[in-house]
Every structure is written in structure tokens, then in C-alpha cells.
Write a protein that binds this DNA or RNA. Sequence first.
DNA 1: GATGAATGAGGTTTCATTCAT
DNA 2: AATGAATGAAACCTCATTCAT
Lengths: 190, 190, 190, 190
Amino acid sequence: MPKIVNHDRYRKELLTKCFDLFAQRGYGSLTMRQVAQEIGVSTGTLYHYFASKEELFRQLIAEITEQDILRATDEIEAQSLKTIKERILALGQFIAENEDYFYKQTLLFINFFQQPDLEEQQLVEAVKRSYKRYQEEIMKFLSIDNKAIVNHVSCLIDGLISQRAFDPESVSIKEQMELLAQMLSVYLQE
Amino acid sequence: MPKIVNHDRYRKELLTKCFDLFAQRGYGSLTMRQVAQEIGVSTGTLYHYFASKEELFRQLIAEITEQDILRATDEIEAQSLKTIKERILALGQFIAENEDYFYKQTLLFINFFQQPDLEEQQLVEAVKRSYKRYQEEIMKFLSIDNKAIVNHVSCLIDGLISQRAFDPESVSIKEQMELLAQMLSVYLQE
Amino acid sequence: MPKIVNHDRYRKELLTKCFDLFAQRGYGSLTMRQVAQEIGVSTGTLYHYFASKEELFRQLIAEITEQDILRATDEIEAQSLKTIKERILALGQFIAENEDYFYKQTLLFINFFQQPDLEEQQLVEAVKRSYKRYQEEIMKFLSIDNKAIVNHVSCLIDGLISQRAFDPESVSIKEQMELLAQMLSVYLQE
Amino acid sequence: MPKIVNHDRYRKELLTKCFDLFAQRGYGSLTMRQVAQEIGVSTGTLYHYFASKEELFRQLIAEITEQDILRATDEIEAQSLKTIKERILALGQFIAENEDYFYKQTLLFINFFQQPDLEEQQLVEAVKRSYKRYQEEIMKFLSIDNKAIVNHVSCLIDGLISQRAFDPESVSIKEQMELLAQMLSVYLQE
DNA sequence: GATGAATGAGGTTTCATTCAT
DNA sequence: AATGAATGAAACCTCATTCAT
């Protein structure tokens, strides 16, 4: 028997290591050699686990699509947050803590939609579903069943993240989430 | 004024034709031959007007950075809109009408920040300034001088655009802008 | 206008230059870089004219299939050769003069049949037709309409060429063709 | 006799399994992984028995060179064949029965001469000797001591095999051998 | 100015070979 | 002895760029 390796486990480990790379440099601008070097394996190994650059990216997207915010709720839900204000602020803090991850995820998804060949309907659907799950999570967490408001919140978060991507000093997550909390509590009491 | 005028005019024409291409396919995934073919010139011609692929992209970013919302205000300001509600809705309609442009602009800027070699401070600054101008424009247009609220609005718009990029059916611009108008008018009257 | 080149003419010129190379070294053992270097162009140029290594080989086979012995008859027919003996000897001389070409052609065809992916029925058929034409040419030239005898002659020639390929000193073309002439004239008078 | 015997026995077994593979696909177009897979061992095992791909091929050639027609004579000689005609026809039948083997042997030898690096004089000599032995065998079997005629026969056989390789329907072994028998008996009685 | 053939560095991918198990 | 994961040199191929026309 050769070097014993949990093939699938290692494959996912490699994907994890690719995450930052693809997010920050973009699919088209990355070479397989660079990827291999940066994650510390040989190109041969990379190809042992992924049939092609395209396939590597595809699997990366699939992986992210499966993970995402699931983690979010688990972590916060434990606490008992009664008012919307409290919950919005808690959400805000969570976003702030994971800003980097959210930002990279966004970049990857955008990159994915830019790659015309990759538009396998299956993956596209998975990404869309992932987006929906994300909103449902927000809905559940905030205990709001007004879909428009949930959309408002999720758009705001998206916008915050992408605007901060260009210039982190242009907006403050905390400030915006406080404003949102304020606006929402006023609006909902109406 | 000899040929120089025509030269510059044509250069900008070429840039305009490149806009969609770079936005939709991404800098790294585009080849100069593809660019040339799609905008209907030879590679030679492309190189006659732009010293390199990088330079072409740089000029494209610069061009967009200079244009953008300037157009926006001109078009709407003409009308006389008294209440915030009216102004928000007008803004919303303008966004909706130009959604495609905003989306592509976002893609290009993200792409720009993904290109490590291009981080010329000068251009980065120009892009940041462009973002600021964009917020000032919103501020002026809505006649609001609370910076947090202006940020709220601009983040929301950004988020709307990027969320709709993934799935246009997930959120409605009109609905969101109406909700925003409602929330703002309530909040401000407080 | 760019460097003016008769694209198709140059393509055939390149093929001609490849002929020896592929025959002597074999498809699988040749690299595109080697090919490019040996025929004096860049790899880029090679790919400008042939989409892939496979395609280059395919075209080479097609080219050879089209040419072949057509040349043979033209050259000899001019002479007036009355007896079979004379004609056989003339044929022998022609073979001897073009031994190198016949040998390389054989090698290429063998190589072609060794490449499993290339078995495009179309080309295979073309190669077979080329073989038939070759026999018809012999038939016509020798003025013999006994198919078995024509086959005898063409097999002998084939065998001569391949046996001499391994060791040119093992058999003499002239000697064999004289023997054949002798045998045939005796046999036919019977 | 310890393991060495088994080792050598297994080595030859592996070579036998490689025979078809190398003949049909060619040295250059085969990868060690393919070889390993097709003969049902791991690449590691292959390397345990053969130091390199080249060495494997070398041994294959050596093996074939040693075997070949030895078998032929043994099988036929037993019979008592009086006339040349009978002997030619018996030879023809033997060829027909082993056509596949002869064909593959030819392919391998051609392949061998196409590999420039392998031109170890030693092996080349062995191959040439093998060819000579082949002719001597024919000579002995047919009881003919006219070298030209023996060459005629062996060329004819070679040609038959290679011509049939391209298109088995183009010539019939039996027909040709009968014609040969006829021609020879007439010619020799002269 | 415009063209596209030519270039060769560099990208993606394959493959002989090694080596831990 | 046997396995197959890992390696990296080298294969095939692409692409920004140049340059003759």
C-alpha cells in the first residue's frame, strides 16, 4: 500500500488553501503553478486531485456554496437576544468578525459568474440556493417574516462589505448596523 | 487641430467598446486577440492605441472613474422633487434604468483590485475619489447631510445591484426603494 | 496588410519539411518543439498553421496520400518499353531511385495506424485508396491484367523496401528485380 | 535456486504481456502508467522489474530477437514435404497462422529503428542477426541454396504482411503463396 | 494607420520516476 | 514485493507583443 492518505479529506484541505488565493487574485489571473506553489504542493499533486484548473475552481465554488453561513447562526443563536435591536447588533458584530470571509466569498461568486464556460446550470443553481439559504438564515435569526425587510438587511450587508472592500474607511459596519437597528425599531413600531 | 483629436476620440470609442467585455469576462480571462476580435479591430490596431493590455485596462478604469454618476445628477436634477420620498423613488428609478451600467462598473472595480500589479496608488486614489463623489452626489440629491444615512443609502444600492447580479429575481429595486423611502421618512420625522 | 504570405502554399511547405522528421522519429517520439526547431520556425508559427500536433500529423498523412506514385508513372511512361522484362527493370530502377521516399512513406503509414485516436475513417479510407491506386499504377505500367501477379510485384517491392530498411546490405533491389523479370517472363510464356 | 528464478520468469511474463501493447501503439505513444494498467500491475512493480521505459523496450526487443522463427521450423519440419511446391504452401500456411505475430514483430522492429537513443550497436546487431537467421531458416526449410531466390521469398512474405496490415482484403496469403509455388517450380525446372 | 503572421515566454497538463507505506 | 501518491521536468499549447507589409 502506498502513502496512506484520506483522499477526500486532503482534497478539501487543498480547496481550503485555495480559497484566499482565488478570491484575491481572481480565476483568470492565477496560474496553476502559482496555486501549487502558494499552497505548498507540486503541480503534479494539484492535478492528482483536480483534473483541471476549471475543475479546481468548480469544486471550490461548490465547497463554499455548501458551507457558508450555516456556521453563523450556530454561533450566535446560543445567546438569548430579545429585541430586534439586540439581534441586529449581534448580527452586525458577527459580520464584522467574519468580514474577510464574506468579502472573499463575494469575490469568488462574482468571478464564477464571469467565467462563461463554467455556467453549468447545476452549479449556478447551487449558488442561487446558497443565497436563498443565507436570507432564510437572516430571517430566522431576526425573527422577522417580512421578506422585503429581510432583503433590505441582506442588501445592506452586501453593500457594506463591497463598499468596504474598496475603502474600509468609507463606512463603519458598527455605525451602519446601529443606524439600521434604530430605523427598524422605529419602523416596526409604527 | 490635426489628427490628434481624432486619435483621442477613437481611443475613447475603443474603450467604450471594451467596457462590457472586461466587465463580463474579467481582465485575466480576456486575451488581446479576443478583445480585438470582439470590438472589430486587429490586434495591431489595439496596440497602436494602447501600449499594453495592462495599459488598456488602466485607461478603461480611468475612463469609468471620470464618467460615472456625473450623468446621473444631470438627468434627474432637472425635475423638482420636494419630499425625500419622491427623491428616493426618483433615485430608485434612475438606478433601475442604469442597473446594467452600475453592475458592470462594480465588476470592473473589483477586477481592478484583484490585479496586484495594477495597484498604482494614483489610480487607486482616483477610484476611491470616484466613490466619494458618488456619495456626495447622493447627499446633494437627497438633501440629507447626515453622513450615516447617506452611507446607508449607498450601501443599500450597492447591495441591491450585486445581489441582483447573482439572481435578478431575488430582490426588486422598486420594492426596496419604496421600503427605504418609507423607513427614512418615518425615521427622520422622529 | 501584414506580411504577405500564401497561407496554403506555406502550410504545404511546412508539411514537406516535416515529412522526413515524422518518418524517421515517429509521431509519438517527436515533440512540437523539436519539429519547430528542425524545420526552422517557432512553435507559435507551427500552431498558427496547425491547430495541434495531431492535426499536423493528420495533414501530413493526407498530403502524402494525395501525392505518391502519380509522379512515378509520369516520369517513366515517356520511354517506350516493349517487353515485360524491360518494364520490370525500369520499375526497379525507379524504385531504387526513390527508395528513400517509399521507405518513409511506409513508416508514416505504419505510424498512422499505430495512433488509435487518429483512426478517422475518412483518412483511413484515403490511405487505403492510395494503396489501390498504387497497384493500379503498377498494373497499367506493366500492362498486366492478372491481379495476382500485380499483387506479387507490389508485395515484393514492399518487402524489399522494408527489408532493406533494416539492413540495406541484406538484399539488392536490382538483383531482385532482375530475378523477378526472369521469373515472370518464363512464367507468362508458359 | 532462490527467488531469482521466479524473478526472471515473471519478468519475461511481463514482457510477453507488453508485446501487443508496444506493437500496436508504439513506444513513443505509450506511457508507463498505460503499460502498467493494461498488463495489470502497478507502476511501482513495473519499475521493480525494469529500470526505465527505455530498458523495458530494449528487453522487449531482445526477447523477440531471441525467440522468433525458432518456433516456426520446429513445427513444420516434422512433416515430410517433398516438392518445393508442397514446402512453399506449408510455409504459406504457417505464415498465415502466425500472421499476427509476424506483423507485430515487424512493427516493433520498425519502432526500434525509429528510436534514435536506442541505437545501441549491440541490439542493432542482434536484430540484424535475427533477420539473417530468419532467411537461413527459410533456405533450409525450402532446400534452396540460391540466395537470390530465398531473398525473393522472404521479401514477398514481408511485403505480404505489411500490405495486409493496411488492408487485409487487398491481398490473400494463400493466393500469393500458390502463385509463388507455381512460378518457382516453373522457373527452377528451366 | 492598419493588418495579421511570427515570436517565444509562460500557461496548462502529462509523464517517467521515486518513495513512503 | 507491491502499491499508488507525489514530484518536477518537459510536453503541448496560448498569448501579449512585435514588425514586415
